[in-house]
Design a binder for these strands. Sequence first.
RNA 1: GCGCCAGUAGCUCAGCUGGAUAGAGCAACGGACUUCUAAUCCGUAGGUCGGGGGUUCGAAUCCCUCUUGGCGCGCCA
Length: 543
Amino acid sequence: MIKKIIQEKIYNIFNKTFEGVSIDISDVDIVDSKKVEHGDYATNISMKYAKKLNMNPLQIAEKISNQLKSDTETFFDDVVYIKPGFINFKINSLIFNRILKDIYKNRERYGSGIKKNDKLIVEYVSANPTGYLHLGHLRNAAVGDSVCRILKFYGFDVQSEYYINDYGNQIKMLGKSLEVRVKNLMGENIEMPEDGYQGEYLLKVAEDFLLAFPDTTSLKSNNFEEFAKDYLLEEIKKDLKSLNIDFDNWYSEKEKIHETGLLEKTLNKLDNLNAIYDKDDARWIKTSEFGDADDWVLIKSDKSSTYFLSDIAYHEDKVNRGFDRIINIWGADHHSHVSRLKASMKSLGNSQTHFDFLMIQFVRLLKDGKDISMSKRSGQYTTIKDLLSLVNKDVVRFMMVTRSSDTHFDFDLNQCLQDSDENPVFYIQYANARINSIIKKSGVSELDINKMDIIESDKEIKLIKEIIGFEDAIKDSAQSLSPHKLTFYLQNLAKEFHSYYKSTKILNENQDQVMSRLVLITTIKFILSNGLQLLGASSPEEM
RNA sequence: GCGCCAGUAGCUCAGCUGGAUAGAGCAACGGACUUCUAAUCCGUAGGUCGGGGGUUCGAAUCCCUCUUGGCGCGCCA
């Protein structure tokens, strides 16, 4: 909010001072000064408009800062222009105090965006219900859930969705695999097919299957498929629950696309739009005409449909459900699907809806510097259950979003098993717990902002500036779909607090001063616990 | 061969819609507990931003090119 005020001031002065040159208010960037000598905030507007004004940036800066100095009395302590053309602002501490009070009054709502009209859908995880969730899904899940929470907090109407791939070859094979395991348990010595699901987990499913169907004589393949799929989907839901993740919608491919006739409808629509053609006994979509490198098969020569056709139908359905923005969070190994899906949507004439794709790069699990993502002995992936048995859920959630999703990420077990230094989650949680402890100790039950002393110390002003930065952190994270920005912000805020804590005794005899400090740290606590919550992590009151 | 992502301090990574002397955490080194939780703090050291061109007042950031690594290029999902 403070930047907005400065922005408007400059915008107005610019218009008054330089008539004839139109300025876009969004061009007036107000940034945090990186160095103390450069004041609190700065702008580079005079360099930006030097060419348009045909003036030396320094001259422009001079004119603007002179105006700012003359027409404001209490807002700025100082306005200086410097070398290439930057204008630096030093804000009056009374302004900071006023802002702190405003923020405190908003409590946990501080940082939230104004309500936006856009309806968003975020699809993520969407792992096939043919096995347990593993490490590869984990990052996707953590990023997806955090993105949803942040977007909601930022003011969007957000729905999260899990696309259940419960139709087609994989499910058939899953059914067959379970059948083999069940028969194995009953003493039949038959082999698992080459492309069957070899994992040991199916033995457990088979055991439970026999408990549910003791009499196997009249069973059909259908029974195996349904049982295995439902069973594993439940396990997936349990795993997600243990990560503090819940979806608004569970979208069944079978029920929503195949049993409703949506697949044929979509195919017909494409056909009517002249977007498909026949070749080699198959039906192809002309994605190459809409920006993709190749055409793709929708109907195979055996007349069955491909996964891709379902995917087109699914996204056509998302569009028809009225979403303004469709966000898909996919594994990076699916990146080629982006251009072909986009091309298909274009061929269907869906140009209004905005598509975003977040590609999640691979995660490796490191222990003692070695990659243990996949157990060499059994050929099994590390599951979410495995990992959660080793590492605290909060740590997992947080660590999984600390890196930008388009870089590879090494999850270091040694680091996460530490209780201190190396572990950023505890660092933040500890700050929160410390604040809570001080509040308790103070015995002040009701904070009164009218009894506050004026905050003027450098360290405290710095903290207020950091608090103000939360709004930007949320905005940046939301707009770029990057939860990692929030993790960096929170670590920084915690750091500033710890430093302040060490340097300043918060509780003392001066009641007004204590009150102002309590308001300050309580505001930090609101942000820390809220920020952790947005990342799916908890904020214990005591540690 | 084509496409996507990445290459920044010893390690893991921010910064990338161009801005001031390139940042953080860890590791290393040196300090701080009679004081609200030392799961903490303070300080030191550490860099040809993969290489080379270009664009301009100004490039880690934009363009071109080369290079290294990961991933993808099915009538699989």
